[in-house]
């Protein structure tokens, strides 16, 4: 074999090997660039990948559970708060009517005491108020000006009736909310307010109404000395 031919065959062999290399490299590069394919990965790598995915899923699931718990906690606490607010509002209404800070309306009676001789005293009116209270009156006002509450004072100065500082002139009109029949009975029973007033020369008229409005309010100052205590 001549030297030239030998060189040529050597070059050919090298060329074939290089072609093999280029072919393999190109195939491998194409394989690597097929994204999303785990086909070429070895088993341990895949297992590791699977493990890490499982761990991530577990962590995420834990997070989901925690967040759901928090959510239900928040929901129930907001429900509780709503219930508390509702209860507080209800109590506010009850106490407001009791304390005279809220206007009220409902079935009741209107008691009109005429007093042409000026003989009806504050004590008689207080009597009448107490009769109404005994009969279950929930809100009372006199002459659309004086709301009768727990601390209401009935006094007389120079023949004028003062209720919580309001000067009242006859005729005295008592609006009371409650069971209207019971209230009217309480006014006109023998020996009661009606009898007392007529003995003094006045007259009592009771009118039952489906809707009586008690619109006057009793101003309330916050207590200065008394502090609420826990039960």
């Amino acid at each position: 074999m001549s030297d030239d031919a030998k060189r040529r065959s050597a070059q050919l062999v090298v060329a074939v090997l290089l072609a093999l290399l280029g072919f393999a490299a190109a195939a491998q590069i194409r394989l690597t660039h097929q994204d999303g394919s785990y086909a070429g990965q070895r088993r341990e790598d895949l297992i590791e990948l699977l493990d890490s995915l499982a761990a991530a899923a577990e962590r995420t699931q834990k997070q989901i559970d925690e967040l759901e718990r928090t959510r239900s906690d928040l929901l129930s606490s907001s429900e509780r708060r709503e219930a508390a607010v509702e209860a507080a509002n209800e109590q506010l209404a009850v106490l407001g009517i009791l304390a005279g800070t809220l206007p009220a309306e409902g079935p009741g009676v209107t008691v009109t005491i005429t007093d042409p001789s000026g003989a009806v005293t504050a004590a008689s009116i207080l009597n009448g108020v107490e009769e109404l209270r005994d009969a279950g009156a929930e809100a009372i006002e006199i002459n659309d000006r004086a709301r009768v509450v727990a601390s209401t004072a009935f006094v007389e100065r120079d023949g004028v009736v003062l209720v919580d500082g309001h000067e009242l002139r006859p005729p005295y009109v008592l609006d009371a909310i409650g069971s209207s029949h019971t209230l009217s009975e309480a006014v006109i029973f023998p020996g009661g307010l009606a009898d007392e007033v007529s003995r003094l020369g006045g007259e009592v008229a009771v009118e039952e109404a489906a809707v009586v409005e008690v619109g006057s309010l009793h101003p309330v100052d916050p207590p200065e000395y008394a502090q609420p205590t826990d039960e």
């Binding site: 070059q11 090298v14 060329a15 290089l18 290399l21 280029g22 490299a25 491998q28 194409r30």
Partner: peptide
């Protein structure tokens, strides 16, 4: 010839799209 062989290999790998 060697370089030509390399080129032929690369082109074959690219265009024949062999599956490994």
């Amino acid at each position: 010839i060697a370089i030509i062989g390399l080129l032929i290999g690369v082109l074959a790998g690219l265009f024949l799209e062999p599956t490994v």
